[in-house]
Simulated assay, not measured.
Amino acid sequence: MKIKLALLALVLGIGMNTFSQELNVGDKAPVFKTLADDGSTWDISKHVGGNYIVVYFYPAAMTGGCTKQACAYRDLKTEIESTDAIVVGISGDNVQGLKLFKKAHDLNFPLLSDESGEIARKFGVPLRDGGTITREIDGQNYNLIRGNTASRWTFIIDKKGNIVYKNTEVDASKDTREILEFIKNNS
């Protein structure tokens, strides 16, 4: 009986560690599909090979730091694309909240919904409980619902599908410039 319990604990422990293993530079990026702000399915495997992919996790749509970070990516989209890179933002917000966030700030890149936290766990990004916030958009109040709150982390995936950059101490106001500098110096 003790051996069976020990074996069960070992199997469960390995499964839990594998599921939420933290990725590091040099690791293969996880494959994932999820819903984007427009309701379409966004599949990372359709983008690997063509461009660098900047994947940034943010806590919640329509909050101060997250809005500042998203607007910086919006404002520097042309410069980012000139480095052969695309950007996707990922949060635990539902699709409706992402759609409202994109509309309210005229964002010009995909926002991806990770309500279950599955994608964040694949990247090793710490999660906290979700929540609901109310924001006024075009004179109407909306409840923005998120299934979880991810830590603010940024990754860059190269054209071979490997993690080449990881920042776990992201400053929302400097993130875009830092990823641009990295890509320019390493491509």
Rank of each mutant, 00 (worst) to 15 (best):
D75R: 11
A29Y: 00
L100G: 09
N51M: 03
N51H: 09
D37Y: 05
K68H: 13
A29P: 01
L100P: 11
Y52Q: 10
N94F: 00
D27C: 05
V95E: 06
V87A: 06
K28Y: 02
K99Q: 14
Y73P: 06
V54W: 05
H47P: 07
G89S: 06
V55A: 13
T63R: 08
A61L: 03
I86T: 04
K99S: 15
N24S: 13
V95P: 05
A60Y: 05
V88R: 06
R74M: 10
L98I: 00
K99P: 03
V31M: 12
Q96H: 12
M62W: 00
K33A: 07
G97F: 01
A70Y: 11
H105S: 10
A61W: 00
V55L: 14
V48Q: 09
D106E: 14
L76H: 14
K103R: 13
D84W: 05
T67N: 09
F57K: 14
A36Q: 06
G64H: 12
T83E: 15
F57I: 05
Y73H: 13
L107Q: 08
Y56E: 09
A61Q: 01
V88A: 06
H105I: 07
N108F: 10
I80W: 06
L76W: 09
S82T: 11
W42Y: 14
T83G: 06
D106N: 15
D43H: 13
I44R: 14
A29W: 00
G65R: 10
Y56I: 08
K68Y: 08
I44P: 13
L76G: 07
E79K: 13
A29C: 01
G64C: 08
L35E: 12
T41L: 12
L100Y: 10
G39D: 09
G89K: 01
K103E: 14
L98V: 00
